[in-house]
């Protein structure tokens, strides 16, 4: 009885301490993580997102293809990677799958005003002010018409993040070279290999949704990913950062089971030995 009392005191002290340094301290340090806003409420929704894909393709070739390719539709960009880096400090993305991962209203507004949509005043793409709302609708319709429907987490991560972020442990190199990125963004964006361990899932979702949520003033642009795409990216980052989770969880059960049996045996032996005392 006395020993149980001591144990109880010990457990209470440990639990109070644990509560203080883990959940409590972290809630004070990090505050509330902002909920991701997948509707992009701040973005005007007056630009149409539907139209004629054929017309859209023409408009795309005339207005976008000098920098952007659409490999899937046989459109090659007008400039190669090095030329693009020389003028924009970053390699413009191929837009084959952009319709599948970016919210359509975000995309439409982005074409007209990239700096405001991404919350990055230094964003490399110039605003396409020459396009009418209807033109934008046609282009968005075109991009959506060629999208691949079910991209997996890895593909989306490469499409959405791979322009600037490397994932060294997966042998994925950023499309834009490090020096150019440093010039463009002020620093080399972090490697994403173990980002799933460095940050909580909720934080990553909120951060990808709007980088200003997590790091006010950061030069990482808001990408306008859809909810589904964001979650797939985060799931992927989480999985590559902790590849042995299933093995660990399964082995843990065995080890703990083994030790419970061990505790039973040692308890029986202790009883036996101590019975003859007193």
């Amino acid at each position: 009885m006395k020993e149980l009392k001591i144990l109880l005191i010990l457990v209470v002290i440990v639990l109070v301490g644990y509560w203080g340094i883990e959940p409590y301290a972290h809630s004070v340090m990090h505050g509330e993580v902002k909920h991701p806003d997948y509707e992009y409420k701040d973005i005007p929704k007056n630009i149409p997102t539907t139209g004629d894909p054929a017309k859209g393709k023409e408009l795309f070739t005339a207005n976008c293809a000098s920098c952007h390719g659409v490999k899937k539709d046989g459109i090659n960009p007008g400039m190669d990677a090095n030329a693009a880096i020389a003028s924009f400090k970053v390699v413009p993305p191929d837009l084959s799958n952009i319709g599948a991962i970016v919210d359509e209203h975000f995309l439409a507004y982005f074409i007209k005003n990239p700096q405001d949509a991404t919350k990055n005043p230094k964003f490399a793409m110039p605003p396409m002010a020459q396009l009418s709302d209807e033109d934008v609708g046609n282009i968005v319709a075109y991009l959506k018409s060629i999208e691949k429907k079910d991209l997996d987490g890895k593909e989306i991560t490469i499409e959405a993040c791979g322009r600037c972020h490397s994932i060294k442990y997966q042998k994925i190199e950023a499309v834009t070279p490090k020096d150019a990125l440093k010039d463009y963004l002020g620093k080399v964006p972090p490697d994403l290999s173990v980002m799933g361990k460095a940050k909580e899932i909720e934080y990553l979702e909120s951060f990808i949704n709007n980088p200003q949520n997590g790091l006010p003033g950061t030069s990482m642009p808001r990408l306008g990913l859809t909810k589904e795409a964001t979650e797939k990216v985060v799931t992927y980052l989480d999985k590559i950062a902790d590849p042995h989770r299933d093995q660990r969880n399964a082995l843990g059960v065995w080890v703990l089971g083994y030790l419970v049996v061990m505790a039973g045996l040692t308890f029986a032996w202790k009883k036996k030995i101590w019975k003859n005392l007193h």
């Binding site: 703990l256 030790l259 061990m262 040692t266 308890f267 202790k270 101590w274």
Partner: peptide, 15 residues
């Protein structure tokens, strides 16, 4: 004998 039992319980917590 007692120590072994304490160790086992401790190891459950530890692992």
């Amino acid at each position: 004998a007692k120590e072994f039992f304490v160790m086992s319980v401790f190891l459950i917590f530890f692992f």
